[in-house]
Design a binder for these strands. Structure first.
Lengths: 236, 236
DNA sequence: CATTAAATGTAAAAAATGTTACATTTGAAC
DNA sequence: GTTCAAATGTAACATTTTTTACATTTAATG
């Protein structure tokens, strides 16, 4: 149902030791959103941490032409809004539910109070944030250095999530996303994206479907990306 | 002497309360590097936090053609290597001194020990890291959405550092960097960059020099970027 | 199974960027 | 001030990407 780029990082709730995760959940209010419903808007000043309980969240902005530009999608256990806790800036992105979604909402002051008693929470939040920074630096690098075909392949790999989690080990892996969404993430038009997807299909790395892309052999794909995109330590 | 993209974020040592900054300095060893000398190499496993005492540090990677691709430059008070403290991954970037540079080097275990006694340090590190994440997301957005001319102008603005710190208020501001460096950061060739710089010069936003670029009126420049690049809350 | 909206596929001209090669300018060192 | 290496400016052509417009395929619905 959902395998979208989860920023290629571990969820906050998984990094947190279980006892602490429970304490965080205790001070949270669970709010339910329907598909497409907005959780936060760009410009909002209200401070607080949000964590995905079930479902998923699209994060992005509206371009000048009114089209929603997807920055990333967050899966279960992942947090967002932490930026509002440590700065005084308004939110820079919209967050919208992807399917029926439940969110743990934690007011800023409540959360900061808990971190004073349990500084270990900061450790986990820092770990998650640094992993995101790492991912973002890699993506920036891809934009700078890689041709579209390679950049696309690399992005597809990051969209696979933790190795072997869903797909058969070394086997195929299905990514549900429209070409227009992927194009928006990669900063190109759907026409250009379609062209390079077909090139990757010709290389028998992927198979193009209606609303999804299938990676035919995850090991082959990862190895191809390693050879053609260089630099990347895609996993430790 | 040095005004390069400092990731457009506050230095770690400035965010940290002074007493804590001193405690961090106390457990550090100061190491001196000459211009161009490597501080860390990609692939290094040794864990530790580094902070720029004086001078500056170029962070980047070597491309397949052997050319150094600049990711960012860090100024005084800024930290790097924090990624090695919270994950077990090797370093992903090279770090080289830009001019004669002194670095506070703090071994991983020592630093983590201090944070247990003074969790406030994690707070500061988190703040800095989140600001970097914010900057990186903005840059990624620029790559996705903006034409080269706009992306260049926006990058120049972020290279100005804290508003009015060095340049005359609302007046001119001189950025020392070669066109080839800027081109590498923007992921284009020097030829293309030169073309758009001249366009910005024709708009009387900048003046192109030998080894530097002068922003003629910082207020005009910021306003132009605001109008043409959209979205960005460049400052709170 | 016919209909329909959404998604994908394709084609051609225009625009942007890269490649290559060379000319010119600048600033520092002597 | 001459010399020289480094940096910037420029031009022609190749390649990639966008733009625009339309055709085709798919999956869901009645």
């Amino acid at each position: 149902m959902l395998n979208f780029p989860t920023l290629h990082t571990s969820p906050f709730l998984s990094v947190l030791p279980e006892t602490l995760a429970n304490k965080v959940k205790e001070i949270a209010v669970v709010v339910k959103y329907n598909d497409g419903e907005f959780i936060h808007d760009r410009g909002d000043m209200k401070r607080g941490l949000s964590i995905v309980k079930t479902g998923a969240v699209n994060v992005g902005v509206y371009g000048e032409d009114g089209a929603f530009i997807l920055t990333s999608t967050l899966g279960e256990g992942q947090c967002f809004g932490e930026f509002t806790l440590f700065t005084k800036l308004p939110r820079t992105h919209h967050a919208a539910a992807r399917g029926v979604t439940e969110i743990y909402q934690i007011p800023g002051k409540k959360f900061m109070g808990l971190t004073e008693k349990e500084p270990q929470i900061l450790n986990a939040l820092l770990t998650v944030t640094l992993m995101r920074t790492h991912y973002l630096i890699e993506m920036l690098d891809a934009f700078r250095r890689l041709p579209l075909r390679e950049r696309t392949a690399k992005t597809l790999v990051t969209m696979m999530g933790p190795r072997g989690a869903t797909g058969t080990k070394g086997g195929e892996y299905k990514i549900s996303c429209r070409q227009s969404e992927l194009a928006s993430m990669l900063g190109v038009t759907r026409v250009s994206l379609n062209r390079v997807l077909q090139q990757l299909a010709d290389l028998t790395l992927i198979k193009i479907g209606y609303g999804y892309i299938e990676i035919l052999d995850t090991n082959c794909m990862i190895s191809w990306v390693g050879r053609h995109c260089g630099l990347t330590a895609l996993e430790g």
